[in-house]
Amino acid sequence: MTLPAISVRKLVKRFGQTPVLQDIDLDIPEGKVSCLIGPSGSGKSTLLRCLAFLEEASEGMITVNGEALGFFENARNERERLPAGQIRTVRSQIGMVFQQFNLWPHMTALGNVSEALKTVHKVPKKEAEARAMAQLVKVGLENRAGHYPSQLSGGQQQRVAIARALALSPKIMLFDEPTSALDPELTGEVLTVMRDLAAEGMTMVVVSHEIGFAATIGHQISFLDQGRLILTGAPATVFAKPRHPRLEQFLDTYLDRGASMLA
């Protein structure tokens, strides 16, 4: 057994008094695609955002390739926050793709992808742009390098966002419903890029309503319901009948398309 890429232990997340995630224990295997599924409001995005340290867990620990993310347990067994610089270092192993793309509107596609190389990593402009261009080629957008986000379709914007994350050579990529803000005819191009990435052996964590994608590409499926991880396992096991009653209900109620596909 190799070390998991991310390991989550006894994670609890509360917003104010309301617990949103409870007792989450999860290992994200390296080089595999892990999918988080579950009903709306079950805490999928919150869990993913905790993995990116965009939300701070209220309790519990997260390690990324063995290094504590955000909090660590000090000599007196207390939970202590890491300094900001160290958090940035651990987080640099992680790339994030958002539902709303979140491209910077004042920069071109090439600018979005090369920006962090230049600003954060002090790569000279020419080299940064060459590396950014290579990423745009990878997502099939080399001829859109000079376009601003407002001049790109949703699918193109999301592919630029993927290229932006990949430009920093992350070890792990997190995706929060990367296709759900897209028109149906544009989801394919984004899923194709994600499939290619998976085939290259990228460690991926994907929150998705595309149950078909999860079932075919995912190596590990985790089903969240009301802030708890109900099931984690290989798709063949998780989706095999008889299913867990909550999962059955979820597939029936929320995902007519996916459910019929798996029926």
Binding site: R91, E115, A116, R164, A165
Partner: peptide, 17 residues
């Protein structure tokens, strides 16, 4: 938009950047 700042946080910008 908060997401634009989060995207910058994710690629390692310092608060100043």
């Amino acid at each position: 938009p908060r997401g634009l700042v989060e995207a910058a946080d994710m690629v390692g910008f310092t608060p100043r950047q």
